[in-house]
């Protein structure tokens, strides 16, 4: 139980062990651990970044789809409008053509009626003159009364 030289020898051994641990044991392991910590931190940061990027891409995709859907709807309404317009125009055109045809037909019919009327009138005049000639055969000199007959014909027309 006595204090002796052993104490000093143990203290020297202790000092050597401390020196060895401080110099050779502690630093390499701490380096390795810190390096790993750094690597893990980097990995986590990268994962976080990737997650955010994915989220953004997802958002962008949704936005794009929304836009596509909108333009699609626009196009459809435009097309429908255009189709309606075309149909409308066609309808108007056909109505116009029909109306034109009708007017033409009516005009033609009117002209024909007029022509017939005139022929009838002419014939009537001729008949009237022929009747008058027959009645007046004796007294009337055709040459003398030609002017008169022409006048009559003119009036009847």
């Amino acid at each position: 139980m006595n204090i002796n030289f052993t104490l000093i020898s143990q203290a020297v051994a202790f000092a050597i062990f401390i020196w060895f641990t401080v110099r050779f044991v502690w630093p390499p392991l701490m380096r390795a651990v810190e390096e790993r910590q750094q690597r893990i931190a980097d990995g986590l940061a990268a994962a976080e970044r990737g997650k955010q990027e994915l989220e953004q891409a997802h958002k962008r995709a949704v936005e794009e789809m929304r836009k596509a859907r909108e333009s699609n709807a626009d196009m459809r309404t435009n097309a429908e409008k255009q189709a309606a317009q075309i149909v409308d125009e066609a309808r108007q055109e056909s109505a116009r053509i029909i109306a034109q045809a009708r007017t033409a037909a009516e005009a033609e019919a009117a002209a024909a009626a007029q022509r017939v009327k005139e022929q009838l009138r002419e014939r009537l005049a001729d008949l009237a003159i022929a009747g008058a000639e027959r009645i007046l055969r004796r007294e009337i000199d055709a040459k003398k009364h030609a002017e008169l007959l022409a006048n009559l014909k003119q009036e009847l027309r």
Binding site: I3, T6, Q10, A11, F14, A15, I18
Partner: peptide, 14 residues
């Protein structure tokens, strides 16, 4: 060794 007072004193005095 730690049941020897020299060792423990060597450590504590260091």
């Amino acid at each position: 060794p730690t049941a020897d007072v020299n060792t423990t004193f060597a450590l504590s005095l260091s």
